[in-house]
Simulated scan of single mutants.
Amino acid sequence: MSSQQRETVVSVPLTPTRSDLYWRRIFNKYDRDNDGRISYLELKNIIESREYDHDLPDNVVEKIMELGDRDNSGYLDFAEFVEMMHNPDLKAVFGHFVARYVHSIIPNRDPVDTTDGIYEEEYSCWPPAICMILISLIEIVLFCYDASQGKTDATGPVAQIFIYNPHKRQEAWRFLTYMLVHVGVVHLVVNLLVQLFLGVPLEMVHRWWRVALVYVAGVAAGSLATSLTDPKVYLAGASGGVYALIAAHIATIIMNWAEMEFAIVQLLVFLLLTIVDIGTAVYDRYWRHLQQNIGYVAHLAGAVAGLLVGIGVLRNLEKRKWEKRLWWAAVVIYFSLMLAGVLANIFWYSHFQ
Rank of each mutant, 00 (worst) to 15 (best):
W23R: 06
W23D: 01
R24D: 05
R25Y: 00
N28V: 02
N28M: 05
E42V: 06
L43C: 11
I46C: 14
E62C: 06
M65I: 06
N72V: 01
L76E: 04
D77E: 09
E80I: 12
E83D: 13
P88N: 12
H96P: 00
V102T: 05
H103T: 04
I106W: 00
P107V: 11
N108M: 04
P111H: 09
V112Q: 09
D116L: 14
G117F: 05
E122P: 00
P127F: 01
P127V: 03
P128L: 08
M132N: 04
I133C: 09
L142R: 01
Y145A: 02
D146T: 06
K151Q: 07
T155G: 08
V158H: 00
A159G: 09
N165G: 02
M179G: 04
L180C: 09
V183P: 01
V190E: 10
N191L: 14
L192S: 05
L193C: 15
L193Y: 08
L196H: 06
L198H: 03
L202W: 08
W209V: 09
V219R: 04
G222W: 07
T226F: 06
S227H: 02
D230P: 01
Y234K: 01
A236M: 11
S239K: 02
A251E: 10
T252M: 13
I254W: 08
N256A: 08
L271H: 03
T274P: 01
V276T: 08
I278Y: 11
G279N: 09
T280M: 12
A281N: 02
L290S: 14
N293K: 15
L300C: 15
G302N: 05
A303W: 10
A303G: 14
A305S: 15
G306W: 14
L307H: 05
R315L: 12
R315D: 13
N316R: 15
L317N: 11
E323G: 10
R325Q: 14
W328L: 15
A330N: 06
V332H: 10
L337M: 09
V342Y: 00
L343H: 03
F347Q: 07
F347P: 05
W348F: 09
Y349F: 07
F352G: 08
Q353T: 03
